[in-house]
């Protein structure tokens, strides 16, 4: 299990990356943290002619809070995002989901953008980006374009990123202070690949559930504040409509079943979190008064 030969380029400046992608297109692969790409190279499931390593490109290492959210550069590791002190406050869903990604050593190298680029149907970060209405900045010599998560993930391991483009940044909007979040995941093994994961966001007037259950791309569903029985009906509809192709019928059935129960639990947890947050805010207001 050794990679096939490739030409290696250590990128120092983003412009070099764009130029080389224009030159090599589909024959190039972008290496950031390598935690998804390197196993694929070792197994020779991909054999790029040129490997473009952006991990030392300073300009892509920025984790920048913006007015409405968080701007995460291509080389920012998952560990860096997780250790950003305001994460739990500003994007609580991501703070809940990131500990489910890989393991500590993988997160130390793996980048958030790399996971999005890889677009594995069972990965947590694409799900979160979709749930959070995040956006991706794709850059090439032709310029930059911003694309919504919903349009970015096209199929399993297939994204809207063109051969001459790379993910320069991910934009994750801050969650509103009156929202509660929950992230629940079930895997055969505690740290294994998710069979089903549910990201839930509960606002004062709406509920959102993003579901990963083995289908090709993350699915996001919005609901008004419905009673539990109605939510269950809605989740049953999602579960039935999932396009799955698991190894066994049992596994398919299991995922559909879990979408309902885990989804409901996630929505309930998110609403409780929202209510707790509101109660804390009320206390603070009270205190200030």
């Amino acid at each position: 299990m050794k990679p096939a030969p490739f030409e290696y380029v250590r990128i120092d400046h983003p412009d070099e990356l764009s130029a080389l992608l224009t030159e090599h297109g589909p024959e190039a692969a972008v290496l950031a943290g390598g935690q998804s790409l390197m196993p694929i190279l070792n197994l020779r499931l991909r054999r790029p002619r040129v490997l473009l390593d952006l991990s030392r490109c300073r300009a892509l290492h920025d984790l920048t809070p913006t007015s409405g959210g968080l701007q995460i550069g291509a080389a920012v590791t998952q560990a860096t995002v997780l250790s950003w002190p305001r994460l739990a406050h500003q994007v609580p869903l991501l703070a809940l989901a990131l500990p489910h990604v890989g393991n500590p050593q993988i997160r130390s190298r793996g980048t958030l953008c790399g996971s999005l680029a890889h677009a594995h149907p069972q990965a947590e970060l694409p799900l979160c980006l979709a749930a959070l209405d995040g956006e991706i900045v794709l850059r090439s010599q032709r310029g930059e374009r911003r694309i919504a998560a919903a349009d970015f993930f096209i199929a399993a391991q297939k994204t809207a990123c063109r051969p001459d483009e790379y993910i320069a940044q991910a934009h994750i909007p801050c969650q509103s202070i009156d929202e509660g979040s929950a992230f629940l995941e079930v895997a055969v093994r505690v740290t294994g690949q998710a069979q089903v994961a549910c990201a839930a966001i509960a606002g004062p007037h709406r509920l959102r559930l993003a579901v990963l259950a083995g289908q090709a791309t993350p699915q996001v569903h919005d609901y008004p504040l419905l009673p539990e029985a109605d939510l269950r009906d809605q989740l049953d509809i999602i579960a039935r409509s999932l396009a799955l192709s698991c190894a066994s019928a049992d596994d398919d059935a299991y995922r559909r079943q879990l979408v309902v129960s885990l989804g409901l639990n996630a929505l309930k947890q998110a609403q409780r979190a929202r209510d707790r947050r509101a109660a804390v805010d009320a206390q603070i207001m009270e205190h200030r008064r």
Binding site: D250, A253, S261, N265
Partner: peptide
């Protein structure tokens, strides 16, 4: 098989 309502 198929979806069933699960007691939580």
């Amino acid at each position: 098989t198929g979806t069933v309502a699960v007691q939580t």
